[in-house]
Design a protein around this nucleic acid. Sequence first.
RNA 1: GGAGAGAUGGCCGAGCGGCUUAAGGCGCACGCUUGGAAAGCGUGUGUACGUUAAUAGCGUACCGAGGGUUCGAAUCCCUCUCUCUCCGCCA
Length: 422
Amino acid sequence: MHDLKALRADPAAFDAALARRHLPAVAESLVKEDEQRRAALAELQEAQGQRKGLAKEIGQAKRKGEDTTEIEARGAALRDQIATLEARANEIQKRIDDVLQRLPNQLDASVPDGKDENDNVVVHQRGEVPSFSFEAKQHFELGEALGLMDFASAGKIAGSRFVMLRGVLARLERALGQFMLDTHTGEFGYEEVTVPLLVNDAAMYGTDKLPKFAEDSFHTDDDRWLIPTGEVPLTASVMGDILSAESLPRRMTTLSTCFRSEAGSAGRDVRGMLRQHQFTKCELVSVVAPEESEAEHERMTRAAETVLERLGLPFRRVLLCAGDTGFGAAKTYDLEAWLPGQQAWREVSSCSNTKDFQARRMNARMRKEKTTVFVHTLNGSGLAVGRVMIALMEVYQQEDGSIIVPEALRPYMGGLEVIRPA
RNA sequence: GGAGAGAUGGCCGAGCGGCUUAAGGCGCACGCUUGGAAAGCGUGUGUACGUUAAUAGCGUACCGAGGGUUCGAAUCCCUCUCUCUCCGCCA
């Protein structure tokens, strides 16, 4: 959501921000609507004041036993007038909100211009891209050969874009999730939280998944949504709150299942478990004072990177350009792991600073001196468990199709060092 | 799923059509008092929008949420949400 007062104060800046997103200007028409809104509001408040006065007069007159027929008639007329004024003010407000709700967040000054992912900027790369003396396989070839990655059964019972992991591969996924949680809670001060996987409209709207991205998520018969990411329940948990300055920063992490309808990605990544309707992700969310969010963004991204480093997976940090930055984000770093089988860098984390964009939508504030200010919210994957597993399988694969378990994970795997065919 | 009770300011709690500008208490802040503290006394104590240079004033709205009745609603009516008690079912 956007600040109407800021728009009014500097319409040109508002349009300039939209232009960076390659969107048309709207400030002029919004400023006009806002003038109408305020005029209507002034009229309404004037009439409400009159109603208050009249009601008081009638009350006093009745107590004295005087006849109030005449004033009551004036009151009745006023009531109708107020109803009309109220309807008009609401209608203008709704028109403004409908436009504002659908406008993306303003980009941070440090975000590079650009059209799509080709204009993203690689910030740094960590770890060596491995070379193989044989032809590296893709994760699904490895997994199916091991007999531990079962797409056929999943397809039978659920459809495409689902998988059943078996045996030590199922355990590997579990191990990765535990390892991520332990790292973030133990070393980075995140509070572990288990969350509802079904949420209401308000939570989805507050985390900017509605109204624009309704078709990307699954909706239930009883009017709830399957969470597309743990970000939704974690962030929306402070919805409507006024937080004390001492309670910030608030850092939360959850290991949750996520659900995506993947409408509109037909034909993309159809093979394997890169893009599923259901996947596990360790999510990081921070709620911080406005002046802290930039530093928090770096800190959060470092937390996510640390997991990749411990697992010995080569990755790079990418700063998304203007055209590739998501709707709610002011600035986003993606972490991309190297997939030897695919010979490609693939996203395993996306860390965003939304600044006050979500906070405004869900009305989450903090106390500051005599007043309140909107908090800043950040979210990042720390990390996408399924995709990290894919990277791990491909990076640690051996010529015979076995997979070496990275040292950091062995305590979580009962000491297992190599995954071999079942 | 069935039956019942409830939701009021940071917290407790009264109010159940107009004298509410939401009583009273607790907490908190500031001041007085004191050698110092406690106690005591006094004053203040929410959010949003509008107006404004202003986080000063002034105005409007807000008693779980949304509708309705009325000249007037915390108070009456309807719908919904959540909490509690009991019953049923159940991992």
